[in-house]
Amino acid sequence: MYPFKYHRPATVRQAANLLAKHEEARPIAGGHTLLPVMKQRLAAPPHLVDLSHIEGLGEIAMQGRALMIGAAATHAEVAGSATVQAAIPALAELAAEIGDPAVRHRGTIGGSLANNDPAADYPAAVLALGATIVTSKRRLKADQFFQGLFTTALDPDEIITKIMLPLPKKAAYCKFRNPASRYALVGVFVAKRPGDVRVAVTGAGADGVFRLSAAEAALQKRFHSKMLGGLHVAADGLTSDLHGSAAYRAHLIAVLTRRAVEAAQARPDKVAAQPAALEPVS
């Protein structure tokens, strides 16, 4: 790892100022993507701005009819939060399956979104749920936020502060893990929202996470796995690598979409979030 200067701001504003002031400075929260990349010398930021001492950046709470998750909330905190488990159980389950226990103790939702790894789990949830990503500068819709492999709408001096997730009626996430790395070879997040149905796919797109409009249209008519009988996923635009061909990933997308819809259907219907009234999902 190349040397760098270490900064520890106490507020988001200070952190954003440091990022603006120092060219090529990078923010660090859990460091579970950035540090491995720096160790491999694929990144050599001259300045690191540590976000982990900013008060309240990892808060999780209901705000009106939306679930708010602070950017610095770790995967373990999201997975273990009774608020998340009650509001969007699929999201708690997704977080519980990221990496391994030690990684979940450090990795954060904001870091995962800002990195936009094509095999990351959170982008599928955030895109399917139609979340809003709140930053130090503005509010970004998930549809604007993800802009291709490891690319987002974030400016270099912009910091994610929280994610606002409108509550779906039902949702579920299904992933097929690479048997060796345990990363999602394909992951599908399905959300039946009050007004529409959204389906987002991670792990498969050559440009990163994307919405599966054909499945959305079919499920819009009726939210049932039977509606996906004729679903054909084209291999165009999908990743092909040593782990699986584009055609294989296309096949997995169709299978996992059906399984996700079935898993979502099996959940009780939900009108409003009542964190205390619902059984947490372990």
Binding site: I28, L35, K39, D50, S52, D100, A102, V103, R106
Partner: peptide
């Protein structure tokens, strides 16, 4: 040294973490 094997696991504030993927300053 790539946060996969877990030989470096220690507890940080009571939680298991990979000390090869944590800076001492943190």
């Amino acid at each position: 040294d790539t946060s996969q094997c877990g030989a470096c696991v220690v507890h940080l504030d009571g939680k298991a973490v990979k000390s090869c993927t944590t800076l001492a300053v943190m």
